[in-house]
């Protein structure tokens, strides 16, 4: 495990930001960390980076206790709302952070050039950060998070200030990190982004991990809609052997939830045997947004 925590807790005065976080992240995966506002996601990341000291619990990152300096040398971090001294240029920003990683001379310069090209900031490299747009600043922050060729990268809302092209760029970088064997810990509210990039997600609610789920797995749950001719109550009952939540919202429509796409041929075949005429079969994979709403629940909705 590249990250492992047990009962991590952070309390600020009487406010509990993270109540009991037990988490495991495997090496090489892109891990999505999801939850509503105020669920404790950023505080959890800060504890993993030793920016905030846990009130209780233990954790290991890259096999070392939280805050270990040698481990931090192999970690990259893009904070939410990345900001740095705005009188510096992007090149100076990267040179400064590179030095803190112990990098010097030609190798640092070459790495800076490569990263500025990768985040598409070459033309603005020698302009002060104060003249950057939010998206440019975010990309500069992303470059500093990758300076040390990290084994583990924490990205806290990396695409929040980016336009669609910028998001595509971040997605490409995450794919490259995964291909290079790095682990990415992604905290984002943009569920579409998470769905497109993450291998696995965890849901946090009120500072506690409530659900973990592998994304795009062949066994992922599918909601199936079947447009049919007349159906008897017995046939409807019989469908429960294939899945759950069998309902008939309209006389010509049956909906049920099955474990995977693989169940579809058997269902169609059985319905035909029962003399039911089938007009259409529409498998609908549960979106991450659906899962999010299921897991987090109505009580967390704003307002």
């Amino acid at each position: 495990m590249i990250i492992e925590t047990r009962g991590l807790r952070k309390q600020f005065g009487t406010t509990v930001a993270v109540s009991d976080l037990s988490l495991q992240v495997r090496e090489g995966e892109v891990f999505g960390f999801l939850g509503p506002n105020g669920a404790g996601k950023t505080t959890a990341i800060k504890m993993l980076l030793a920016l905030v000291e846990p009130t209780a619990g233990t954790g290991r990152v890259l096999g070392a206790p939280l805050g270990d300096r040698a481990a931090r040398a192999r970690i990259g971090f893009l904070p939410e709302h990345f900001r740095f001294h705005d009188t510096l240029t992007a090149t100076e920003l990267l040179r400064f952070h590179g030095r803190l990683y112990g990098l010097r001379g030609g190798s640092l310069d070459a790495r800076i050039d490569r990263l500025l090209t990768r985040v598409d900031l070459v033309d603005a490299a020698d302009r002060p950060l104060r003249g950057y747009s939010k998206g440019m600043l975010q990309r500069a922050g992303l470059a500093q998070a990758l300076l040390n060729d990290p084994r583990l990268v924490f990205l806290d809302e990396p695409t929040s200030g980016l336009d669609p092209l910028g998001r595509l760029l971040v997605r490409g970088i995450i794919d490259e990190l995964r291909a290079g064997g790095a682990t990415v810990f992604l905290n984002s509210h943009l569920l579409g982004e998470v769905e497109a990039t993450c291998d696995r997600v965890a849901f946090v609610k009120r500072g506690r991990l409530v659900e973990e789920r592998r994304l795009a797995a062949p066994t992922a749950v599918v909601d199936l809609e079947v447009r049919v001719g007349p159906v008897t109550a017995t046939t409807l009952d019989g469908l429960s052997r294939f899945g759950t939540d069998v309902v008939q919202p309209r006389p010509d429509l049956i909906a049920l939830r099955v474990e995977s796409d693989a169940a579809v041929p058997a269902i169609v075949s059985w319905l035909v045997q029962q003399g039911v005429s089938i007009h259409a079969v529409q498998p609908r994979r549960q979106s991450l947004e659906d899962v999010f709403l299921d897991v987090i629940g109505d009580d967390e909705r704003p307002g």
Binding site: R69, R72, R83, F84
Partner: peptide, 14 residues
């Protein structure tokens, strides 16, 4: 306050 120090303190320095 501005969060600048987060980037700094997450580096491998005391």
């Amino acid at each position: 306050d501005s969060g600048v120090v987060q980037t700094l303190a997450s580096k491998p320095i005391d």
